[in-house]
Computed example of a mutant assay.
Amino acid sequence: MLTNIYFVRHAHSTYTPDELGRPLSIKGLADAERICEILENENIDIIISSPYNRAIQTVEGVAKFIGKEVIIEDDLKERTLSVKPVEDFNFAITKVWEKPSFSWEGGESNIIAQKRGIRTILRVLDMYEGKNIAVGTHGNIMVLIMNYFDKKYDFSFWKDLNMPDIYKLSFDNKNLKEVNRMWNGT
């Protein structure tokens, strides 16, 4: 019996310094409607999301469609890169991917963020075995989770993601069997 996790990288958001409350942009809201249309045909049973507003907004249409609440999982929030804004984001993100145990001041290393995300996903696989689960999440934590199951999902893969993006991961128990890109946000 397969369990399918549909990772939904959040749609485009309007930048604000409030990471938790940042809303989707007009384009992001339109993309969230498209995500709902795509996932309506996937027999989704459960909706889980990061606590960040942009991730919740991206999957809440699916939750309304199936008549269920969005379950918030704090450990699916985006990885904290640094406690302070970094001067050069590309340099900062490259360094944490090159050295998985490295972290910037107040930030999470790849190893720490991955452990956090995997702990939650393994619990979800136990709780909802045989179900179809949509997960509203973020690019870095999503790829770190995918990387745990298959190392080909790495920094280069992350750089090629779109906003939004949908990946269906099919599991037999906790063994990843297949990954399919459902929509690339274009």
Rank of each mutant, 00 (worst) to 15 (best):
N110W: 02
D165I: 06
G136Y: 04
E78H: 09
D165K: 00
L39G: 06
I71L: 14
N110K: 06
L39H: 05
I5T: 03
H138I: 13
F65I: 11
I166W: 05
R119S: 15
D154R: 01
R22L: 11
V96P: 05
T94I: 04
G139M: 04
K84A: 14
F91P: 00
M163P: 00
H138T: 11
S103G: 00
S25L: 05
T186S: 10
A92M: 08
E78R: 05
G61K: 09
E108Q: 10
I38T: 08
I46H: 03
R123A: 14
V70L: 06
D75C: 05
E33P: 04
R9D: 07
R9C: 10
M163W: 01
K151E: 15
A134S: 07
I133F: 03
F155W: 07
E129P: 00
D74H: 12
I111V: 14
A55M: 10
W158Q: 04
N162P: 01
K177T: 14
R34W: 07
N132E: 08
V62L: 06
I118P: 06
I166N: 07
R54V: 13
K177N: 12
I47P: 01
G130C: 07
T94S: 15
N140L: 03
L29W: 06
D45K: 00
T94N: 14
D160Y: 03
F102C: 03
E60S: 12
D150Y: 10
I145G: 05
M146I: 06
K174S: 10
V124M: 03
L29R: 14
L122W: 01
K168E: 07
L144G: 01
K68T: 13
M1N: 07
Q57V: 09
D160T: 13
I112P: 00
Q57P: 08
S103Q: 11
M182A: 07
A55D: 07
I166E: 05
N180A: 12
F89M: 09
N43S: 14
T16C: 11
I166L: 11
E69F: 03
S82M: 08
R123N: 15
D88G: 02
A92V: 12
D31A: 13
N53I: 13
D18M: 11
N90W: 13
G185R: 02
K115E: 15
T80Q: 08
Y128L: 02
V62K: 00
A113R: 00
L122N: 09
W97A: 07
A113I: 10
M146E: 07
Y6L: 04
I46V: 15
L20I: 13
